[in-house]
């Protein structure tokens, strides 16, 4: 076991060294393309599939008392269009996201981390309903998760902890 001990300390230290510069980089775009081809996009049912998922998402969101107050009824069709565009771009479905960046579109809404996670849960339900395999869901969610830094409100105005 002695052999294990020294590398353990080095591994943790090494991890910190490797990851430290990442903080200095500019934030990634809101819709990074994560797939090499359109296979993943097809797993979501293509463009029509994303429209169905987004429609179902808003059925769940509007029934979700934790977060339905954030959405104005007249803006929902536009939000749905923008989500479809964004998901389509991420999944390499040949779309270009034309909406505002995440920080601008969520400024002053006062969204908490719990609200962000509530939307993730509703999106998981919508993807489940549309039979998107768990592993494919996680690839989309992994691309969306970093948006928390732009979307979640920081009371002291700092973006980083």
């Amino acid at each position: 076991m002695r052999i294990l001990r020294i590398p353990a300390g080095l591994a943790v230290g090494g991890l910190l060294l490797v990851t430290a510069p990442v903080h200095a980089e500019t934030p990634p775009p809101d819709a990074p393309v994560i797939a090499r081809d359109d296979h993943l996009f097809k797993t979501f049912g293509g463009h029509d599939g994303l429209v169905r998922i987004t429609d179902d998402l808003f059925v769940f969101v509007l029934a979700d008392r934790r977060i339905n107050g954030f959405f104005e009824a007249k803006k929902i069709p536009h939000i749905k269009d923008m989500l479809v565009e964004q998901f389509c771009q991420i999944l390499n479905g040949g779309c270009t996201y034309t909406g505002k960046d995440m920080a601008t579109s969520h400024a002053k809404l006062g969204i908490h981390e719990g609200d962000f996670n509530a939307l993730v849960e509703d999106l998981q339900k919508a993807m489940d309903k549309n039979h998107v395999p768990f592993a494919a869901q996680n690839r989309l969610l992994a691309a969306l998760a970093p948006q928390h830094r732009a979307i979640v409100y920081k009371p002291n105005g700092s973006e980083e902890e």
Binding site: T19, L141, A145, P146
Partner: peptide
């Protein structure tokens, strides 16, 4: 102390 195991999917920092 730092990091978010779940949400920081674009970073290596645990």
């Amino acid at each position: 102390l730092t990091g978010d195991a779940v949400l920081d999917q674009d970073r290596w920092l645990p």
